[in-house]
Design a protein around this nucleic acid. Structure first.
Lengths: 283, 283
DNA sequence: TCGGGTGATACCGCCAGGGTATGACAGGGC
DNA sequence: GCCCTGTCATACCCTGGCGGTATCACCCGA
């Protein structure tokens, strides 16, 4: 049983994502024929059909979907190996940690963590890597970050080690001037089906959940959509920090609490990371 | 930043494990010079020294240890991708699950799980893969198994999704005829330092914990050591099933409970696996 | 019917990766 | 001190695999 080469996985993932040999080849910086041949060889070696080439396009078979998912994980693990090795032996301080923090997250908790960490006598250098709404998991998996602040249940903690740091309620952010903005408190049921004000959606595990609300890629988009009176958002209490003048926050009485965790790759054996986690849990 | 090739990782892991270029080359089925060159190229590309070649042997640098650990994880992920893809598209039934079960585990729970699973109307084919004392984690990681029964705190559940299935106390297994065998119950403190009867040790995460007791690789070795009066063992209550006539079980009043989990690779999206887990949790 | 677009095939050239032979160097036995 | 042994590095060659170009086969829509 011969093992898959990284190159083959890269090629297949590109084709599976593009569903088009020409575009995939372009993305890979190569010509289309060798790419076609490489995929055929891969299918032969695995003894499995990965792609259905009907007329009018390419589509994934069941096995192809499995390989897309597992192959991405393997490629992430491979680049994590390279990155972490480089960092471990780099000229810069080997005790250097990268903490991925959602740019929209609570500034206050991060500040307290940074201060407490810096106060440690033998603190490792700590770099903060701001990231998008649900990007932390990818950063941890492919080694660009050593730890991340995640927010259950929005982030998926499966596959990582983690410790809970704090818990908070949620609020509804509605356009100032909307009738709901005058209410002292709301329930999830009350904000679920407001005519003309559907709940905004943002990516979870890379895809947007279904629903009528508009899609927001980052916080600025979301804030603008709210200010324009197009949507309302359900967000953690600490999000009050970034509210605009055109936003009004209304507490939700029955929303599930949002738990902020510090998460890191499972089985990590770094002493510097262990120290950071200890500091975080003692905040 | 060019990506590492599977081949390079295989080569490095072989050298790092053997700490000897010649033996590693033999294991890889190749000659030593190209292996030396490949490792040099790898070090150049990473910009990091991985191995210290002093006279009289090769040793790992810090970066080398990181790459050994991360590289193994990446290789596991790669072979898992190949295995799961083959299985997903294989000629055999695609809805086929492999469950890793410690050969020394409770037969009764496994039997109940198998029966309940078989009773499901659309049950996937379920293969039981017996394995050694702490082998489940490796089997899950490299794709040879889809799920495993694990026993916290003996197995490390980090990096997997899991659900607890049952909890049980622990017993001390002592040679029949030993003074302790007459006691109705014992505490951990009482069995910790019995003169002439040290507690047996078995591998955890691949290495034996330190201690005076003899090392046991599998259950038969352990059972024999106890029967010979050379050691005592602290094991879950369900281990009564495999006791010999020369063994006596004594309940431990203060041992931490052993929790049996069903565990599976994080983020798995297989419907067949989800059904198995549901069945297991409803036992 | 023809042109555009897709993936597959044919064929070629190059170089990366592997093999063999040998070197450099340290340690141990006598 | 000498030589032998064991180890990894270097030098050199050669082959096969990978990628490139040109082209085909096929399906569509105009």
């Amino acid at each position: 049983m011969d093992t898959l080469e990284t190159r083959e996985l890269r090629y297949f993932v590109a084709v599976a994502e593009e569903l088009h040999f020409g575009r995939a080849a372009e993305r890979l910086g190569m010509a289309q024929p060798p790419l076609s041949r490489a995929i055929q060889q891969l299918e032969r070696r695995l003894g499995v059909t990965l792609l259905d080439r009907d007329r009018r396009g390419v589509s994934l078979t069941g096995a192809g979907e499995v390989l897309l998912y597992e192959g991405r994980a393997a490629l992430d693990a491979t680049s994590a190996a390279a990155r972490r090795t480089r960092r471990a032996g780099g000229v810069d301080h080997p005790d250097r940690l990268v903490l991925a923090v959602k740019a929209a997250g609570s500034h206050e908790l991060v500040q307290r963590l940074l201060d407490a960490h810096a106060a440690q006598p033998d603190a490792a250098e700590l770099e903060v890597l701001p990231c998008g709404i649900c990007e932390q998991e990818e950063l941890l998996r492919d080694g660009r970050a050593d730890a991340a602040l995640m927010h259950a249940p929005f982030n998926n903690l499966a596959g990582f080690d983690s410790e809970a740091l704090m818990s908070e309620g949620q609020i509804a952010v509605v356009p100032t001037g909307h009738p709901l903005a005058t209410r002292p408190a709301l329930t999830l049921a009350e904000v679920a089906d407001v005519p003309g004000l559907p709940i905004a959606r943002w990516p979870r595990d890379g895809v947007y959940p279904p629903g009528p609300g508009p899609e927001a890629r980052d916080l600025t988009q979301l804030a603008q959509l709210i200010a324009l009176g197009r949507t309302l958002a359900v967000v953690p209490d600490s999000a009050r920090a970034w509210l605009w003048a055109d936003h009004t926050a209304v507490p939700l009485t029955d929303a599930p609490p949002v738990v902020t965790h510090i998460a890191w790759p499972a089985h990590s054996r770094s002493r510097a990371l262990a120290a950071l986690v200890r500091t975080a849990t003692q905040l």
